[in-house]
């Protein structure tokens, strides 16, 4: 199973491109798609799910062009859009039965999957309640359940953890990891820890262009021995920000603990620390902006 994206572009207006010249190959694995808001992640998701046509380029699933033949991927596609709704007067069970019928599942399999997925998403107690009584987080979990209904070979989830509390977010990450075997999973988000805990490969988009597609380890290696932490007086923080790529700051009684990236130690008391994916991501975006 492989999803191949070749020179993909989507033009919205004369000078406005949602994405541009994206070439990617995704095999059976969890691929994190990272990028700031407006980077083009949702546009790419919509093209991959055949909901939107690209302006240029092609996308193929197992060798078949899905722009020309969208039916090649739709039966094996699971999709959680960033902005999706529900039918408020249906119960959870009825809604999932409806989606299962739309996805071509037989009644017996659909019933079994619904049982299992309501457990997986921790919605088993509310399966006979109407969806209009669900909170935002519960609706998000409904979206995740419907995306997994047909045991998809290609699972595309756009910002899946939005609206979930920390406990549910951790559970969802685990669920994604556990169900990712033998399928291509594309996880789009701007929340780096979500990708860090689930994805093995990362693609970073910015301003509609692909910056990199590599393994998590390789991306982190790019900033190895470049991350430092130290405490500075609050008054000096703005000067530090002007000179370095600051990854994070934490308020301390002695000042502000700064985590930043530098080729050499910025101060004598700066301590070199192991880099994280968030450091690597910020560095990639920063380099792109400098270019």
């Amino acid at each position: 199973m492989a999803l191949c994206i070749n020179q993909l572009g989507k033009q919205y207006a004369e000078d406005i491109w949602g994405i541009r010249d994206i070439t990617l190959e995704m095999d059976e694995d969890i691929h994190g798609l990272l990028g700031p808001n407006g980077a083009g992640k949702s546009t790419l998701m919509q093209i991959l799910t055949t909901v939107m046509k690209p302006t240029t380029g092609s996308v193929s699933w197992n060798g078949t062009d899905i722009v020309e033949s969208p039916d090649a991927v739709r039966p094996v596609l699971g999709y959680l859009p960033q902005d999706f709704g529900i039918y408020p007067d249906l119960t959870l069970e009825e809604f999932l039965e409806y989606m299962a019928a739309l996805r071509g599942l037989d009644a017996e399999t659909a019933s079994a999957r619904i049982d299992e997925l309501t457990k997986l998403t921790n919605l088993v107690d509310v399966r006979t309640r109407k969806l209009k009584t669900f909170s935002g987080g519960m609706r998000q979990r409904v979206g995740i359940a419907q995306a997994l209904l047909n045991d998809p070979e290609l699972l595309i989830v756009d910002e899946p953890t939005v609206g979930l509390d920390p406990e549910e977010r951790v559970r969802l990450r685990s669920a994604l990891s556990n169900t990712a075997t033998d399928r291509v999973v594309v996880l789009s988000t701007h929340i780096v820890p979500d990708v860090e805990s689930t994805a093995n490969k990362i693609a970073i988009l910015d301003d509609g262009r692909l910056l990199t597609h590599t393994s998590v380890e390789a991306l982190i290696d790019n900033v190895a021995e470049m991350v430092y932490e130290f405490v500075v007086p609050r008054a000096e923080l703005s000067t530090i920000r002007d000179q370095y790529q600051v990854c994070s700051t934490v308020q301390r009684s002695a000042g502000v603990e700064v985590r930043l990236m530098a080729e050499s130690p910025p101060t004598e008391d700066a301590e070199q620390v192991p880099p994280t994916l968030e450091d690597a991501y910020l560095d990639a975006i920063d380099q792109q902006h400098e270019v």
Partner: peptide, 26 residues
């Protein structure tokens, strides 16, 4: 929900082999 959460590790999902079952009546 009041039911205790099911352990993810203990869960297995029914594999779907037939995605062309129709289901038009449903």
């Amino acid at each position: 929900p009041t039911t205790e959460q099911t352990s993810l590790e203990s869960m297995s999902l029914t594999p779907v082999t037939d995605r062309k079952a129709g289901g038009f009546g449903r």
